[in-house]
Simulated assay, not measured.
Amino acid sequence: MADVDLSRLPPPQGLRVVTGGHLDPQALAELRAEAMRPSLEASGRFDPGRVRRRFLDRYDPTATAAFYDGSELVGFLVLRQMPDHLYLDHLYLAPTRQGTGLGAQILQSIQEEIARPSRQEIRLIALTGSPAGPFYERAGFQRTGSDGIDDSYRWRPQPA
């Protein structure tokens, strides 16, 4: 199974994309903890060490792209190639960049530059009750299930 070619992602306006071995996994884990904190605190489940470990234990630089404004890390994603779909394992933005349209721009790039040309659906999970669910629904994802902790979503490219 080939890795997803994240170099095909166009950089969001004013930002640069960094992939592969040039990434700092500790900085990515820290950004994840910052981004998830409000939703996890609201559900009574915030454990900063666990949030970081869950990312670092499965870190794969070949599936990761980070977004920088100068030297400032403002977001990252992890997109994994599965046998029959793409799995968006992570998409996090720094709290100061949330709600600016940056996440929608990144997600649209994944859909248009990677998923649609390869005719692959994208699947993901999002914490139940978090703002992530409505964000993905606005981008055309459909909720496909829930285990009470996480909701499952998928997006299918429509034929041209």
Rank of each mutant, 00 (worst) to 15 (best):
A2W: 00
V4F: 00
D5C: 00
L6E: 00
L9W: 01
P10R: 01
P12N: 01
G14C: 07
V17G: 00
V17R: 05
V18A: 01
V18F: 00
G20W: 14
H22Q: 03
D24I: 05
P25K: 08
P25E: 10
P25A: 11
L28C: 10
L28E: 08
L28G: 12
L28P: 11
L31P: 12
E34W: 15
E34K: 14
E34D: 14
A35P: 13
R37A: 14
P38E: 14
L40G: 12
L40F: 13
S43R: 12
G44L: 09
G44C: 12
G44S: 10
F46S: 08
F46W: 14
P48S: 05
R53G: 03
R54M: 11
F55S: 03
D57P: 02
R58G: 06
Y59D: 08
Y59L: 05
P61Y: 04
T62N: 02
T62I: 01
A65T: 01
F67Y: 02
Y68Q: 01
Y68F: 06
S71E: 04
E72Y: 02
L77R: 00
V78E: 06
R80V: 12
H85M: 01
H85S: 01
H85L: 00
Y87Q: 02
L88P: 07
D89L: 08
L91M: 13
L91S: 04
L93Y: 05
L93G: 05
P95T: 04
T96V: 08
T96H: 12
R97A: 03
Q98I: 04
Q98M: 05
G99H: 07
T100K: 03
G101P: 12
L102W: 04
L102C: 03
Q105D: 13
I106R: 03
I106N: 02
L107M: 14
Q108I: 04
S109K: 06
I110K: 02
Q111K: 12
E112K: 10
E112F: 04
I114A: 08
A115S: 14
P117G: 10
R119F: 15
E121D: 11
E121F: 10
I122D: 05
R123K: 08
I125W: 10
A126L: 10
L127V: 07
L127G: 06
T128I: 09
T128W: 03
G129Q: 12
P131Q: 11
P131R: 12
P134E: 11
F135Y: 12
F135T: 13
Y136H: 11
F141K: 07
R143S: 10
R143H: 08
G145C: 11
G145K: 10
D147T: 06
G148Y: 09
I149W: 09
D151W: 06
D151S: 12
Y153K: 08
Y153H: 09
Y153D: 09
R154K: 13
W155G: 10
R156Y: 14
P157N: 07
P157W: 11
Q158K: 15
Q158E: 15
Q158I: 15
P159A: 14
A160R: 15
A160S: 14
